[in-house]
């Protein structure tokens, strides 16, 4: 599925979608950025509660398809703008990380 399709799924909400047609191929959950960076793969949906500016760099370097902020977490000030300018898709959901990952897994 595409990132846009995920953003239109009930329970998920787009924060910024500079690359809406990007396809999601798998997913990764994690909040320790070094751990994520060592393991997340390109084109995955990355589900995290980390909301600081460094997630934009990690997503860029890992080339993930989308960052999904779970548990109702909102991005810190300036993160959405930076993500948008770097072509990083950002989606939020109130679902806990486990439920968000399970939902994405069913959809892709």
């Amino acid at each position: 599925m595409t990132v846009k399709e995920l953003s239109e799924t009930p329970g998920f909400k787009a924060i910024c979608l500079p690359d809406p047609e990007r396809r999601i191929e798998g997913g990764y959950c994690g909040d320790l950025l070094s751990w994520v960076m060592g393991r997340a793969k390109a084109s995955q949906a990355w589900v995290t509660i980390m909301s600081n500016m460094n997630i934009a760099a990690v997503a860029t370097l890992c080339d993930t398809a989308v960052i999904v902020l779970s548990e109702g977490v909102q991005p810190d000030s300036g993160v959405a703008e930076t993500a948008d300018s770097r072509g990083i898709n950002l989606i939020s959901t109130d679902m806990p990380t486990f439920e968000a990952a399970a939902a994405i897994s069913k959809l892709i």
Binding site: L32, L33, S34, M50, N54
Partner: peptide, 9 residues
């Protein structure tokens, strides 16, 4: 607290 310092660097 920012997600670093996990001893993975």
């Amino acid at each position: 607290s920012l997600g670093f310092g996990a001893g993975m660097g």
